[in-house]
Computed example of a mutant assay.
Amino acid sequence: MCHSADIGELPGQVKTAALVGVPKLVIFDCDGVLVQSEEITLSVLIAMLNALAQRETMLDVTRFIEHFRGRKIADCLREAEQLLNVSLDDKFEQHFRQQALEALTHSLKATEGMIEVLEGLTVPYCVASSAPRNKIEHCLRMTGLLPYFEGRIFSCYELGRWKPDPLVFLTACDTYGVDVSDAVVVEDSVTGIQAAVAAHISVIGFGPAHRHSQLAAAGAVPISDIRQLLAIFN
């Protein structure tokens, strides 16, 4: 289905090597793809962790936003306990999720051009995320995207396996009756890209230019503007 080619430039962007051919299903990640939530929620998490840390062990915000991006929060917390030499109880994650939802409510925005993409796609699409369903729905509701994804949401929490495990992507393909060779995943994290590669699904890596080498090394075709999808698929 997919071959390598150049697509046209968008204003202020370089020409990008991209996948061409119309897929039968587009699977979007939520955080960092549909909505710009990763920096918001992970900034909250790192601030809460640093409040418990000694000065010499405090986490660098920029570095650990990238390090934790796309990963299961429980795994991030277990790693943070070792890095900071602290013990986190169950209430910490609950408190974090409450603060993160409040921050998202005040600051969350849909990715620029996302509604244009959703209205321009001529093939089925869905969202497959490592986040809990209530967070996915909250993010989509706050940004006006929920009507586009009602009945099209797949959460790792409901499957009991998280990216980079490919199950959430395989479940989406199975639900839509689409072979993995006819699907495309759009991801912003190395963890998510690894899940798509493990599922043998072509993957597009969405992120700013300075992350393109990281996304490409993980196995994705990088793009900087979500509207490039319309040029790739149509």
Rank of each mutant, 00 (worst) to 15 (best):
L52S: 03
A47V: 09
V33W: 00
C139Q: 06
F154K: 03
F64N: 05
L121K: 08
Q36V: 09
I7P: 03
L83W: 08
F206P: 02
F64K: 05
L10S: 15
V123H: 06
L25W: 02
V117D: 02
V203I: 06
V86K: 02
L88E: 01
N134Q: 14
L19P: 03
H212P: 02
E137Q: 13
Y157N: 14
T105F: 05
D90T: 13
F68A: 02
N234D: 14
P208A: 06
A195L: 04
H212S: 08
G8K: 15
R141Y: 07
G113P: 04
P166I: 06
D29H: 12
E119S: 12
V190Y: 00
C139H: 02
E158S: 13
C30F: 11
G21W: 14
G205H: 00
L45Y: 02
G113Y: 05
R227P: 06
V26P: 03
A183M: 04
K24D: 15
E79G: 06
L104M: 12
V190S: 00
G192W: 01
S43T: 15
N85S: 13
L145W: 03
K24F: 13
T143I: 09
A218M: 08
R211I: 04
L45W: 02
G151E: 13
V61Y: 08
V22E: 14
H212C: 05
S107G: 05
I27W: 04
H200L: 09
L229E: 12
I193N: 00
K91M: 12
D31Y: 01
F68Q: 00
F68R: 01
T57F: 10
L83P: 05
A220N: 05
V33G: 00
T171W: 06
T143P: 03
S202L: 08
R55G: 06
A217L: 12
I232G: 07
I115M: 09
V20I: 15
I46R: 02
V61A: 10
V185D: 01
T191D: 05
P132C: 08
Y176M: 04
